[in-house]
Amino acid sequence: MAALMWMLGSVIVAFIPLLFLIGYVVNKGYAVIVRNFPHFWNDALPTVTTEAGGGMRPAIMGTLLMTGTAAAMAIPLGIMAAIYLNEYGKNQRLARALRFFALVMSGVPSIVMGLFIFTIYTVNSGFSGFGGAMALGCLMLPLVIRTSEEMLKLVPNELRQASLALGCPQWRTVLTVILPAAAPGVISGAMLAVARAAGETAPLLFTIGLVYRTNFDLFNGPNTALPSQIYANATAGPFPAPQERAWGAALTLILIVMLFSIAGRIVAARFSKIRQS
C-alpha cells in the first residue's frame, strides 16, 4: 500500500509542473502571437527592447539556419563514428574508449561547449551564426553517435552476411544494406538531437552576438536565435512588452522543437513502410 502511494504520488507530483508550465506558455504565448498575427513571426526585432511591437523573424530564421548547419555537420560525423564503433571497432580497446568518451561528452554542460567555441573561433572571427552552429553541433555529436550505434546494433547479422556472401565489399554493405535498414531509428534519433540543440541558449551566449534584422550570412556579422531572444526579453526588467515578447517566442520555440520531433517520426515511419513493401 505504501509502495503504491509513493508511486502514484510521484507521478502526480511530476505532472503538476508540467501542466502549469505548458498551460502558462500556451496561454500567454498564444495570446501574443494571435494578437499580432502574422507580424509576430514576420517582422524584424525592435531596437529598443522595452518598446512594444516588432516580431521574431530574425530569431526564427537564425534558429533554423544555425540548427540546420549544426545538423549538417554533426549528423554525418556522428553516423560515421557510430559505423566505426559498430561495424569495425566493436570490442577493441580503442572502440571501447571512444564509446566511453562519447557518453562522457554527452554530459559536458552546454555552456562549456559555448566557451570552447568562443576561445577557438569567436575570439578571432567575431560573432557569427557559424560559431553558434559549431557549438550546437558539438552538443549534438555525442547524442547522434549514441542513438545511431544503438540502431546499427539492431540490424540483424544475417543481412551483413548475406550481402558479403554476394561479394559486396564491406563499405558498400554498410552504405547500401546496413544504413538503410537502420535508417528509421537513426533519423528519429538525429531529430531528437536537433530538437535538443534548437532549444539551447548557453552555447549561443558567447558565439553569436545580437542583431535586429535577419542575417542570412552565417559567416559574417552577428546573428540571433529564439532562445537568445527569450533570455534577453525575460531579463529585460518589469516591462510588459518584453515579457509578452518572451512568452510569444517561447511558444514559437516549443512549436519548432515539436515540429522537429514530429518530422523525425514521420520520416521514420515512411522509411519503415518502404522497407516492408
Binding site: V25, T201, P227, Y231, V257
Partner: peptide, 12 residues
C-alpha cells in the same frame, strides 16, 4: 518535460 528548452523553464 525533457523536450522543454531550459530557457523556457527559466522564463516560466
Amino acid at each position: 518535460l525533457a523536450a522543454v528548452p531550459s530557457v523556457v523553464y527559466g522564463l516560466w
